[in-house]
């Protein structure tokens, strides 16, 4: 039974990656780094529910197995299908929405990093539905970098996805989308939280201006 679900999960993953690539004609541009096995946290702008699918799909298959998207528990746990997709297909790290519940909401993420997994993370905390290119970052990413000083933080700018799948729509438009992978960033000694968050935000915004 378990192997059957595993097999279905693998097949679903293949179908989702293929569909995402076909529909959006995705190109991954590794501008600041190469895909490798270093433990990484890919942080990206967040405009649509399929952002993480595309980022995940654009990684080489071997890296994909060790790279887990961080997603909101409420949204991904409320139906059996979503539970199957988030847990079995993407092996997502589910976190409760900030504020509610007791204890550290990032505990499952810290655990995943301690296990050696790479992560896909959206530091804006929520989808950006505004006109501005990037919302202020939540402080979670700083705490992760602080607890794991060797972790490479890779900025990934995703273009056009808000047009491929606008909010509240279900039929995707077949427009082209590009992922720009930037140079790794690490927390420096004596860097304050605000400084670090600002540096990450600027690194990501810089990539948005890079027309390739």
């Amino acid at each position: 039974m378990n192997t059957l679900t595993g097999w279905v999960a693998e097949l679903t993953a293949k179908c989702i990656t293929l569909a995402a690539r076909l529909i959006t004609g995705t190109r991954a541009l590794w501008l600041g780094c190469n895909p490798n096995h270093n433990q990484r946290l890919y942080f990206a702008n967040h405009r649509s529910h399929v952002d993480f699918v595309l980022l995940w799909a654009s990684l080489p298959a071997l890296l994909r197995k060790r790279t887990r998207p961080v997603a909101g528990a409420e949204y991904w746990q409320n139906t059996a299908l979503k539970r199957f997709i988030s847990q079995r297909v993407f092996n997502a790290v589910l976190v409760p929405r900030g504020g509610r519940g007791k204890g550290n909401p990032l505990a499952p993420v810290q655990q995943a990093l301690a296990d050696g997994d790479s992560l896909i993370f959206f530091p804006e905390g929520t989808r950006n539905l505004s006109e501005s290119p990037l919302l202020p970052f939540k402080s979670g990413i700083y705490h992760l970098a602080h607890a794991h000083p060797d972790l490479e933080l890779i900025p990934v700018w995703i273009t056009n996805l808000n047009r491929v799948m606008p909010k509240g729509r279900y039929l995707p438009l077949p427009l082209l989308s590009t992922l720009h992978f930037g140079a790794p960033i690490k927390l420096q000694d004596e860097e304050t939280k605000m400084e670090f968050l600002e540096r990450l935000r600027l690194a990501l915004l810089d990539m948005s201006r890079e027309d390739v």
Partner: peptide
């Protein structure tokens, strides 16, 4: 068409028009 519309800025309000264009 996909190349043209990718480089042409549209807004969320054009969604239906774009759906009609492609589909």
């Amino acid at each position: 068409l996909r190349e043209f519309l990718t480089l042409t800025p549209t807004r969320d309000g054009d969604y239906l028009a774009l759906v009609a264009a492609f589909y």
